[in-house]
């Protein structure tokens, strides 16, 4: 072959270098997040002691009598996340088992994408739904329910998370080899027995990964709670009264005109840092579990 090569080693190396830099950008994103959070959080802790931050029972940075007890905000986050998971875990798992073990292939191919639309709805839309549809509905059942509360956005957040759990769990169960099921069926087991005693245990790490991802999503969810949960940080587990989550607080501050360098400005980074830390741990855990599951079956 006569060589009219346009190829050159230099070009190959340049391309590879450019591709590598693009991949490296993700590392810089994380570094960017961490360094900005640390920088502002450091400034924050010059003015407020870590001990107060972690133990004070009040969060009132906008008031004259300032308190910086992040527990009040985390109580709100914990409460809404808990309610969301109480809704999402049973529904999501039942859907997953149903779709993976009971539904026909045809039904699964139609129902799964439709369910996934629930996760594609913008969260501000869910906020609207929680405030103007679910809360009035719940107030008919629970007269004591305040107009802003943890219950309604919690439930709606759960609805949003259903497809995260159902789809990822279904994927995990679907990946369990058919031979395992056949073994149990051959012994005369019913579908339910196969599902609960063979498929669920085999897919456990994949399912757990999806649950953790759901929790992480709930903790980081912002707009639903910003719209429908209120803006009153308080250390309570009562789902009927207005509360404030970590994320909703950050939004509340950003909506006002908060100059950089003030303590209010720095609080959003300190709270953001805590939020990032918690979701970071959950994400890594979920990643490791998913990887473990993949190594077992794929």
């Amino acid at each position: 072959m006569i060589l009219l090569r346009s190829r050159s080693l230099v070009r190959e190396k340049c391309v590879e270098g450019a591709l590598f830099l693009s991949a490296l950008l993700s590392i810089f994103t994380t570094l960017g997040i961490i360094s900005i959070l640390i920088f502002e959080t450091y400034e924050f802790f010059k003015k407020v002691s870590i001990f107060d931050f972690l133990t004070d029972r009040q969060w009132t940075p906008m008031f004259v009598d300032k308190h910086f007890g992040i527990l009040s905000l985390f109580a709100g986050t914990f409460l809404t996340t808990l309610i969301a998971m109480v809704v999402a875990i049973p529904i999501g798992l039942i859907c997953a088992v149903f779709l993976s073990e009971y539904a026909s292939n045809r039904m699964r191919t139609y129902v799964k994408p439709i369910l996934e639309i629930l996760a594609a709805v913008p969260t501000v839309v869910y906020g609207y739904f929680a405030l103007l549809f679910v809360t009035p509905l719940l107030q008919k059942l629970i007269p004591d329910l305040a107009g802003f509360n943890a219950l309604s956005p919690g439930i709606v957040m759960g609805i949003m998370i259903i497809p995260i759990i159902s789809s990822l769990s279904e994927d995990a169960m679907h990946a369990v080899p058919m031979s395992l099921r056949e073994g149990a069926y051959a012994l005369g087991a019913t579908r339910l027995q196969v599902a609960l005693r063979v498929v669920l245990p085999a897919a456990l790490s994949g399912i757990t990964a999806s649950l953790i991802l759901g929790i992480s999503r709930a903790i980081g969810e912002t707009m639903i709670v910003a719209v429908a949960a209120g803006q009153q940080p308080r250390l309570t587990l009562n789902p009927l009264v207005p509360i404030e989550t970590v994320t909703a607080y950050i939004v509340q501050v950003s909506l006002g005109d908060t100059p950089a360098g003030t303590i209010e400005y720095q609080t959003i980074f300190a709270t953001g840092m805590s939020l990032f830390g918690v979701t970071f741990l959950l994400n890594i855990l979920s990643y490791k579990l998913k990887k473990k599951f993949r190594e077992a079956y794929e």
């Binding site: 991949a23 970071f280 994400n283």
Partner: peptide, 25 residues
């Protein structure tokens, strides 16, 4: 390996944290 774990984590970072990054950066 680090890049892969990092991307998996970034995919799960709450969007509001990206807002803080955008604001700061």
């Amino acid at each position: 390996n680090l890049i892969e774990i990092n991307i998996a984590n970034l995919a799960g970072v709450p969007s509001i944290i990206y807002g803080l990054l955008g604001l700061g950066l």
